[in-house]
Simulated assay, not measured.
Amino acid sequence: MAKKLFDYQLDEPVEGFFLLKDSEVRIAKNGKKFLAINFQDISGEISGKFWDASDQDVENFQAGRIIHLKGKRETYQGNPQIKIQQMRLTHAGEPQEVQQFVEHAPLNTQTMEDEVNQFVFAITEPNWNRIVRHLLTKFHADFFSYPAAKKNHHAFAGGLAYHTLSILKLAKSVADEYPHVNRPLLYAGAILHDMGKTIEMSGPVSTTYTLAGNLVGHIVLIDEQIVEACQQLKIDEQSESVLILRHMILAHHGLLEYGSPVRPHIMEAEILHDLDELDASIQMMQTSIGHAEPGTYTERIFAMDGRNFYRPTHDQTKGDLDGHASQD
């Protein structure tokens, strides 16, 4: 059985077929072009540099293509890296199906859809329920197949729905513990908070940001969709219920410098922000810890202030933490 990317140990030769998740042309100090690449398979992704890239190399090695790689597993500034020795496009009879190299959510689409729908039933406020149902229907296919980010947390196929479902489960625990929390509002906000990423990003394979994603961003994009839904459903968009729901989405990044137009001014908005941060952080740590051996440190996690995390020697969760290989 062929090894996966993260099966290779430090200084071990690497050889196999992998997906080019990213491939960006850059200029080295000597003025020559090189490609900054992220190789991917179902175990995750590792970066590499293809030096002295010719125009033909740039044409051949584009994001979304499958290649055969020979190289060596190394580290650079605390992060795993592949030293590329040889790289070529696949030939006839070799792997051609991109989906077999794409990391997937641990739950399949049908399971996530069924579980999300159970939370929709608990949204008893009529306006929130109608808006959520309308937008879930409109963005259904993308919502259950897109990643939650290009990089960092839940950056795998189905990651958007999986992240949303994780927050919903956390929200239920919070609402069970604190009865005064507005459960329907918290659920509605959780389902909608990142749905704008279906417009912000290009899809689950070799994900990039769209023009709207770069210039507007997912928070404003889904807020616009809520207003449009109100118009189509004949709901007063200036009613308190709609304004409160919009506030949940607009405030969920917590701080203005993190992209939120407003800071949370409703208890449920603050809770949603906290749960969003919690789930994203745990997923990033869990993924990195799954790539580390007991008794060693993980790679540095850029989105967590560049910190790395120690995996204790008594950790027995290796099988549970490795990868997200479940398929639909």
Rank of each mutant, 00 (worst) to 15 (best):
Y297T: 13
H154I: 05
M112R: 10
A122R: 10
E237G: 01
V98L: 13
S260G: 11
E200L: 00
I226E: 06
H91F: 14
M267D: 15
Y76P: 15
K70P: 12
I84T: 04
H193N: 11
R26S: 00
H154T: 03
K21W: 01
K151G: 11
S202M: 02
F17G: 00
Q9S: 13
A157W: 02
I271A: 07
S145V: 02
D305E: 00
E257W: 13
P147R: 01
V220L: 14
N117T: 08
E113A: 11
Y76L: 14
H265D: 03
R88F: 03
A251T: 06
I271K: 10
R311W: 00
V227T: 08
Q77E: 05
I249H: 02
A175Q: 06
I167Y: 06
D22K: 05
H247F: 13
K32I: 07
Y209H: 03
K49H: 15
E224P: 05
I219N: 15
A325C: 01
F302S: 10
K49Y: 07
H140F: 02
V102R: 01
T124C: 08
G44A: 06
N79K: 06
F309V: 00
D305C: 04
E270L: 13
F156P: 01
M201F: 02
E97M: 12
F119K: 12
D11A: 14
G31I: 12
L69Q: 10
V120E: 10
H180G: 09
Y297F: 05
Q85E: 13
G78M: 05
G295T: 08
K70D: 11
T287L: 13
K172P: 01
A161C: 04
R65V: 15
S145C: 06
N152M: 10
R307N: 03
H314R: 00
A280R: 15
G259Y: 07
E125I: 15
L165C: 09
L10G: 09
H265N: 13
Q85Y: 05
T109D: 08
G158S: 04
A171S: 03
A28H: 08
D236N: 02
F39G: 08
F302Q: 15
L136D: 12
E268Y: 12
H134R: 09
F39C: 08
T75W: 08
S260V: 10
S206F: 06
R130C: 05
F6W: 01
Q9A: 13
P204H: 13
E200V: 00
T317I: 10
F144L: 05
D279S: 10
V242P: 00
K4P: 01
D11V: 14
S288E: 08
G31Y: 09
R88T: 05
H104Y: 00
I191T: 12
A188F: 06
G16P: 01
V25M: 12
A149P: 01
K70C: 15
G44W: 02
S54E: 04
Y178R: 04
N214A: 07
E268D: 13
L168N: 09
L255Q: 09
P179C: 11
F156E: 01
L221I: 11
K172D: 06
Q286C: 07
A105P: 01
E45H: 14
A325F: 00
N214F: 02
G323F: 04
A148C: 06
S260K: 07
I191W: 09
T210Q: 11
I249V: 07
K70E: 07
I226M: 01
A280L: 11
A303I: 00
H140V: 07
F119N: 10
N38T: 05
P126T: 04
E94Y: 11
I42V: 07
K33R: 08
